[in-house]
Amino acid sequence: MANPPASQSDRPNATKNRRSFFAALAAITTGAVVVLTPLAVGVVTFLSPLLRKRQSSTVRVALLAQVPDDGLPRYFPVVADREDAWNRYPQQRVGGVYLVRQADEAAPTAFTAKCPHAGCFIGYAAGADHFQCPCHTSAFKLDGSRVRGDDEVSPRDMDQLPVELRELQLASGETATEVWVEFIDFQTGHKQPIHTT
């Protein structure tokens, strides 16, 4: 309080003005560097999830013998290694698929259980003639198409996953067939299936 601030009339002259302009500029720049450096470093770390790519894994979901060719969906959990930041969980349930095999078809069709609308888990009650999503009640026929077509809240039919049959050679000399599925995660809400990776 001993030194009150300079009054308007004590304003510095033009030279001083130029000098103080540079001083102000320098002060602002220095201050900005001091504040923005830690902020920028924080932001970079914060953005790091954008740099991480996820790859869809191809996983064994069932034996072919477990999928009778009666055209009815059967649910199988998808078990794969899962990483979460500093943890690695070996052989975790990471999602689910419905396998449907029509009469005389060699390979089943695989549908991911994730709803194309908002990502809920589509349900299937044994014996029912359609799949039903519990969230916004989208319904799908057993071939994955939407029951009410474009009137359904889901923007597209259920997402299909590539299926591969692999022969398993046993020690006994016998063979068994396994169903492998590429477990792709799709973006929700679009007319076209787009991978999230």
Binding site: F46, L47, P49, L50, R52, R54, D84, A85, A118, G119, D185, Q187, T188, G189, H190, T196, T197
Partner: peptide, 21 residues
């Protein structure tokens, strides 16, 4: 999941909120 459907930056936005995929 809905946020990821936001135009343009939706997917990135979700990734940032969720801290990954």
């Amino acid at each position: 999941e809905l946020a990821s459907q936001a135009p343009i930056a939706g997917v990135a936005l979700k990734k940032l909120a969720v801290g990954g995929s």
